[in-house]
């Protein structure tokens, strides 16, 4: 009898457990909407109120503290984000993809395992430590090498961001190369192609989309990175003219200024508007990367 009772209980518990599991699964959707909702909610009064969107996107004047007339132009901040990201990608995409090709196609298996662990550890280093490295270690090096008066600038931030982006570009890139069926490699080798020819003529075209997705994810990470750029790129809100100019990015602006704003004030709300903008940019990059990867899968299955 006891068995039967326990059995009945477990049969009753089953739908409950299933409901909880489903709820947890759907929570991911809930959180994405919640993030959007709450960030947007704090920024909305300003977005639909005093904020002049034309000025917001086209003005280089970011003067949130001005007593006479506060100005909220993010063009310089956008330029800051764009310049640091561009430099970081210029350095990290070739390096990351090159390393991915090396690890996936040329490397002896034992070295590959070690390298992957090193890369994994590299990816684990917190962004504030990267910022610290830029601020304390790279800064004097750059002053010595470039002769600039201060080494906290685009170059510094770009190098740091590049180092941070390499692991993700590399691991996504390696996955893309791995996804190319071995039969392609074997067929090419059977035709007398060298390993480099296999990579160049067969793998790269076949893995094109996955590698593109890797680069996109690297961009996404760079645009969203906060602490490292806050510490390593300097604090000048300006359109940069050279690699040695300090800049301020969108993310760094929020991190640096939110603490000093009055809750519910214009400045406070504008920072949330910037947050909304950042989120939309991140969604766009991620969705594109996702679609690009899906494109690959679809073609290979079909």
């Amino acid at each position: 009898m006891r068995h039967a009772a326990a059995l009945r209980l477990s049969r009753l518990a089953e739908p409950l457990v299933e409901a909880i599991i489903r709820l947890c699964g759907w929570s991911a959707i809930f959180f994405v909407f919640a993030i959007f909702f709450f960030v947007f909610r704090e920024g909305a009064p300003m977005l639909f109120g005093a904020l002049d969107l034309g000025e917001f996107f086209t003005s280089v004047n970011w003067r949130p503290d001005s007593r006479i007339q506060a100005q909220y132009g993010v063009l310089a901040l956008l330029a800051g984000t764009a310049s640091v990201t561009a430099l970081a990608m210029l350095l990290s995409v070739p390096a990351g993809l090159g390393a991915a090709i090396f690890v996936s196609e040329f490397c002896p298996p034992r070295v590959r395992e070690t390298l992957k662990i090193v890369i994994e550890l590299l990816a684990a280093i917190p962004s504030v430590v990267w910022g610290f490295i830029g601020y304390m270690v790279l800064n004097p090096v750059l002053i010595a090498v470039t002769g600039a008066p201060i080494g906290i600038n685009i170059l510094n931030g770009g190098i740091i961001l590049a180092l941070m982006s390499v692991p993700i570009i590399m691991s996504v890139g390696e996955d893309a190369l791995k996804a190319v069926p071995d039969t392609y490699r074997e067929a090419a080798i059977a035709l007398g192609a060298s390993r480099w020819q296999v990579v160049y003529k067969v793998l790269l075209p076949a893995a094109k989309n996955g590698l593109l997705a890797a680069a996109l994810l690297g961009i996404g990470r760079s645009v969203g990175e906060t602490m490292a750029v806050l510490m390593a790129t300097g604090h000048a809100v300006q359109i940069p003219h050279s690699l040695l100019d300090p800049v301020r990015t969108l993310t760094a602006t929020i991190a640096a200024e939110l603490g000093e704003t009055v809750e519910g004030g214009d400045h406070y709300r504008v920072l949330f508007v910037i947050g909304t903008l950042l989120m939309l940019m991140a969604f766009l990059v991620n969705l594109t990367a996702d679609l690009v990867v899906k494109g690959v899968r679809g073609k290979q299955n079909g």
């Binding site: 994405v32 990175e225 991620n286």
Partner: peptide
């Protein structure tokens, strides 16, 4: 997308 949200946006 949740994985791609910038950390500062999580702060907001």
């Amino acid at each position: 997308n949740l994985a791609g949200v910038p950390s500062i946006v999580h702060a907001l």
